[in-house]
Write a protein that binds this DNA or RNA. Sequence first.
DNA 1: TATTGTTATACTCTATAACTATA
DNA 2: TATAGTTATAGAGTATAACAATA
Lengths: 169, 169
Amino acid sequence: MRLTRHNSGMPKERPSPPDATPAGRLTEACLHQILGYQLAQASISTTGVFMRQVGKPFELRPVEYTLLSLINENPGGSSTRLAKALAVTAPNITVWVDRLEKRGLVQRLPNTADKRAQQLQTTASGAQLAAQATQCLLQGERQTFEGLSDGERMILIELLHKLACQRAT
Amino acid sequence: MRLTRHNSGMPKERPSPPDATPAGRLTEACLHQILGYQLAQASISTTGVFMRQVGKPFELRPVEYTLLSLINENPGGSSTRLAKALAVTAPNITVWVDRLEKRGLVQRLPNTADKRAQQLQTTASGAQLAAQATQCLLQGERQTFEGLSDGERMILIELLHKLACQRAT
DNA sequence: TATTGTTATACTCTATAACTATA
DNA sequence: TATAGTTATAGAGTATAACAATA
């Protein structure tokens, strides 16, 4: 695998050092080695892509999109499992699912086996929206991050997933 | 390089599929390929480490720690450059620097060349705190993410930085 | 006229507490 | 007694608008 330097392509006024902030021309030095910091910096890029490709056109916030997708891919799942997967509290899930339900994107069905619980699933339009949004997002990320090869993107995904699996609960 | 599976070590009750959410036992499927989603999931892990190692013991929020570190490594820098580096608005920088200044961690010095601007720098205790916090955080991340080899961590940092450099502005 | 930094304010997102219904 | 889900409320964090001082 080849890890090309991020400024290998077009020439800049002054080539920034490898430990410089992506914007503001500050040096990161120690901070450069902190995973949490690099994650936050990278998130600035990805949320930008999300907003342009999905957030504004489909009027979906990041949480709403993720919830919709997870419900779509796990029909019959419960709110509790969503809360655990996204590490947010139960009351918030309720509110977000409320919004999605009012837009006719998801449904709450009674769980006959356990009357406390409910089974969540997407409606036809919800499923369609989820598929569309994911396509736009995937395409947007590929375009924006074309500096990364397919292999690099694969490895990044893999390592991020590995990191995510190391969480406390 | 060897990319070991995240569940290669201790056996679990049921080995989760590679595209399952780190918690909640839901399948990610399409979502698995979205960088923004994986970034968000990984952030759950890193913010956990930050809170335990730095947040609670040093009473520093993520933004405060990052600001303190950047000011420490870029003495004489301005608020505007910090705002650009962290992609937050100027008013927020003011408030956060206020807090750090009241705690005696940073100082605002007049810029003689441009009287509108100001030069930020850490105090002696601020510099010490920044160094200490970074050490604790680095150590904490190494321990928590020992599932990642040094090489994998290096590659992850590199790829995240590359991603971060692709941002709009 | 543009830029630096500040104040005041509103909005978004998330968390906690208290509650109902069921297991 | 514990769990699933809801409601109401409080708290973080961030953004916008309006302003002063300087370039």
